[in-house]
Design a protein around this nucleic acid. Structure first.
Length: 312
DNA sequence: CTATTCACCTGGGTGC
DNA sequence: TGCACCCAGGTGAATA
């Protein structure tokens, strides 16, 4: 369940159903689900036992549980959903999903946490927490409430594998002027930069297309050819469309994208560009077009988003 | 260095 | 019903 709103929906589910509980057992099947974990699945399963879940945190599309191990500093159980990962909170005797790759059991005999992933691009890793390289001096209140929701900061730090990921537009650490400067300096298609998690995180193919449509900018436009205010507006549209999607529980076209209780969001009804090929543009009525871009699809209105003459 | 492409997977939909 | 082919919310390792 990929982009920021969908991942945040999952994070909230974990905050509600998993934070505060103690792990008694982990079960990882196969090598692949823990391929990003240094010690492999056995080491991961061993080391999470007896840990208490202190928080569920997120940056962009990366999600992690802060685990307080008995004789160690807190570590992060990083969970990336890839293209098709799901985290489900279910009774231990619920039928096993076909692509179930990991389970966590807790000492309260409550429901277990399951990681299900059809395409196996996602995975789990237990890693140290580092100081946030993007932490900014925060203004005003000392609210350090954990949970890591938007605007609360990452009080436990950032997992090692997330250190290279830029802040997303819904967190305090997001440095709008800096992102605008970075984008303006690149002679690269602006959609490529929206999708570059090292520039701004959380945006994927759906919300990039939606933000570009709202801004009236074609994704193939070189970022350097846009004015700074235009780049700023584009980023604002990205933040806004993701906030709106979050309020609807995220976007899902099928049962692959669900919250921890298995329910789908319904922002797909509000999409103006993504997946709308051939349908009339909500602003001008022109047929939405689809074109190939970076080995995937881009959807845009040929009238509202004029195509640059020169390829970027 | 930076910029692009490609491999990693399974399954659903479509057209012959 | 079968089968080949295209498509899918992502990432980072391998290339140019």
């Amino acid at each position: 369940m990929p982009e920021l709103p969908e991942v945040e929906v999952v994070r909230r589910g974990l905050a509600q159903h998993v934070v505060g509980r103690r792990v008694v057992a982990a079960d990882l099947s196969g090598q692949r689900v823990a391929r990003r974990h240094d010690g492999g699945p056995v080491d991961l399963a061993t080391r999470v036992r007896q840990s208490e879940v202190l928080a569920a945190d997120r940056r962009g599309k990366y999600l992690w549980l802060v685990l307080d191990a008995p004789d160690d500093d807190p570590h992060a159980l990083v969970m990336h959903l890839g293209m098709s990962g799901q985290l489900l909170v279910e009774p231990a005797d619920a039928p096993r999903e076909k692509h179930l790759h990991a389970t966590l059991d807790f000492d309260d005999d409550g429901p277990q946490l399951r990681f299900v992933d059809q395409r196996t691009f996602g995975g789990l890793a237990l890693t140290p927490l580092l100081p946030d390289p993007h932490q900014r001096a925060h203004h005003g209140d000392a609210d350090h409430g954990h949970g890591g929701g938007p605007g609360r900061g990452h009080v436990h730090g950032i997992p090692e594998p997330v250190a290279h990921i830029a802040p997303d537009p819904l967190e305090d650490a997001f440095d709008r002027p800096r992102v605008i400067r970075t984008m303006k300096s690149k002679n690269v298609a602006v959609k490529r930069l929206l999708l570059d998690q090292g520039v701004v995180s959380g945006i994927g193919n759906i919300y990039a297309d939606e933000a570009l449509w709202r801004a009236g900018v074609h994704g193939r436009r070189p970022a350097s050819a846009l004015t700074r205010p235009a780049i700023g507006r584009l980023l604002d549209h990205a933040a806004e469309v993701m906030r709106e999607a979050l309020a609807q529980g995220g976007t899902s076209f099928d049962a692959l994208y669900v919250n921890v209780n298995g329910a789908s969001g319904y922002f797909d009804r509000s999409l103006d560009a993504y997946g709308q090929t051939g349908r009339p543009c909500a602003r001008c009525g022109s047929a939405i077009r689809r074109e190939e871009f970076m080995n995937r699809s881009s959807h845009f209105c040929p009238r509202c988003q004029t195509v640059p003459r020169v390829r970027a």
